[in-house]
Design a protein around this nucleic acid. Structure first.
Lengths: 341, 341
DNA sequence: AATAATAGCTCAAACGTTTGTTCTGATAAT
DNA sequence: ATTATCAGAACAAACGTTTGAGCTATTATT
């Protein structure tokens, strides 16, 4: 197959100037009075020689790379994986490509990644920020790069975001426990300080208070969203003289760790202990005890986030679709036992 | 914080020429006899004004973007998610960024993505190809873009690849069934034609033949790696007058679908039917019946693939680390029942 | 017949780098 | 006193685009 490396070669084959070829290819033939005949020849020859412009050069000239940066704490986590998927698909539909970055939930890495993306001149950034500190991300925004926050939001900034209503999700879950008679409910959290986490904890707290159940600070425990954390915290709980009747696990991996510890201790769900996990997964229904979960609208998060970012980039509806909170859904299965008092 | 947009501004602040600044910043100060004093000033001022070069411009000039394209059939699948993760991390360590593309397991999409990545002037491509046809990928390689294939390989090409030894994995799994007395074993496959799939089927076949068990073609069924496929095929199996005693599910999603169908039919694993799944996952141990799986070395696939690609890009060890097949591991749990004949 | 208008295209600068070559003083060698 | 050497830096082209401005025939207008 014949092919050509740049517009210059194409122009010389066509016996036309570079500018003419460029204009035709960019659909500006009409307004620059390039004849129909010429236009057609340009299009045909471009196709024949498989030419389409070098995106790097184009990016430099136009100061627009049609590229967006995506910073995710853990792409191996299927929750983020499916968000990434919708974002990628939506982006491509609109002519954008995704530069994927995994922050490993580390704040310094995240800061470096933001700088890197700036140097790569991405047209926008979608980030699930790792932490509470937000200077490095607002800084990027102030440099003029549109930023969209997902999954978590950053307090005391007015960065636009789209998240699940984590507070509501936790409220629903906790009230479900309570409705089934539970009073002593542990909460294994993820990273303290992360908005998603703290909102969930708050929902948990408020649900208890609403029903006049004292909240015990020792029942709120945990350090991160990983499996090991779920395991360790659950072991601690089981070592207690009187362990709680229920565990609210604030992530899918935490709940997996919990299950491991429970299994190891020879306890069964929900007979010995009940559990609800944040984040529905493909396997949730098929666990030893089918898990009651709080489902987050992952596809919608991705789609809305990209849409909003695109609006900012295109400067349409400035500051409109700013802060979006999506409804979670409590999926009832069998991991919560009704207990009598 | 003071900042500067390009090397020109920086140079004028420093009262130096652009070339001098560029050379210092690229570590070529010495060889161009730039004085220590000047060099230091350049470094300091660059840091002070938070300058580092525009990667787009650099990419254009150097014809090297420090970018690699990653084409994955489904980034929401945690198997691919964790491969992507190691690749991203390894890449970043080496100064590369990843452009992520989800092919949706669609061949046309894949072909378009390859073209796009070429236009974006990536320095290399890592791809888990969707199909059997390989022209579009060899074509890219012939354009001079290094290509590395993962997870699956492309027959009748000599593209370098790193995959699991799928044949061996299937052999191990099937022989395990046989060792425990199973003779009537179904095999629910993914996409027919994909090497990973076909190797697995071949391993299944050979294991049966090796033990003089006739292979029944009707016991090899299925259309893709998804959950729904697992569900539908399992239902078909259960509708048979005499259903098999064991199911070999060729992906983690297929096995999930199988479980769903079994559960729906009121059957339990392994008492009513045994099952082994290809692809170990975080949840495999915690299913209603802890699943015996064939584990693939995901991290290693990612790491080796990127390493090999880097070698090709850097033109070291040409054609050496070409075709890598990694050992799978059979993880024994409880989903296979010993049956007596 | 002279001028104006227009169709149809080309020139050249610019985006921000890197880099081969060249320039300018100062010092060393003759 | 002249030339050679070298330290220290600057010039300008190039990477592949896009685009404002300009150029040249041809046709329309007066």
């Amino acid at each position: 197959m014949k092919s050509v490396n740049n517009i210059k070669e194409l122009a010389s084959i066509l016996n036309l100037s570079i500018s003419t070829v460029s204009r035709v290819l960019n659909g500006k033939g009409k307004s620059f009075r390039i004849s129909e005949a010429t236009s057609k020849k340009v299009f045909d020859t471009a196709k024949e020689y498989n030419y389409s412009p070098n995106r790097v050069a184009r990016g430099l000239k136009l100061e627009k790379t049609d590229t967006i940066g995506l910073i995710i704490p853990d792409i191996a986590n299927p929750y983020f994986g499916s968000i990434a998927k919708t974002i990628e698909v939506e982006a491509r539909k609109n002519g954008y490509s995704i530069i994927l970055c995994d922050s490993l939930d580390d704040e310094n890495t995240e800061a470096e990644l933001l700088q890197l993306l700036a140097k790569r001149k991405v047209d926008g950034i979608i980030i699930a920020p790792t932490g509470k500190s937000s200077n490095h991300v607002t800084e990027i925004q102030e440099q003029g790069i549109p930023v969209m926050v997902i999954d978590r939001y950053l307090p005391d900034t007015n960065l636009p975001f789209v998240t699940t209503d984590n507070y509501l999700g936790a409220l629903l879950a906790t009230e479900h426990f309570i409705a089934l008679g539970h009073r002593n409910i542990a909460c294994i959290q993820g990273i303290n300080g992360v908005s998603a986490n703290n909102e969930r904890v708050k929902g948990y707290r408020d649900a208890l208070q609403k029903h006049r159940i004292p909240v015990s600070e020792t029942m709120i425990m945990g350090t991160d969203f990983g499996e090991e954390n779920g395991y360790l915290q659950t072991r601690k709980l089981l070592a207690l003289p009187e362990h709680p009747t229920a565990i609210f696990a604030l992530s899918n991996l935490i709940s997996l760790g919990s299950i491991r510890a429970l299994k190891e201790a020879g306890l069964t769900i929900p007979d010995d202990i009940s559990i609800i996990s944040f984040d529905e997964q493909a396997w949730s229904a098929f666990l030893t005890c089918p898990m009651t979960t709080v489902e987050q609208p992952r596809e919608e998060i991705g789609r809305l986030a990209f849409g909003a970012l695109l609006n900012i980039i295109d400067k349409v509806l400035p500051e409109k679709t700013d802060k979006i909170m999506l409804q979670p859904r409590l999926i009832l299965r069998e991991s919560v036992k009704k207990i009598l008092k």
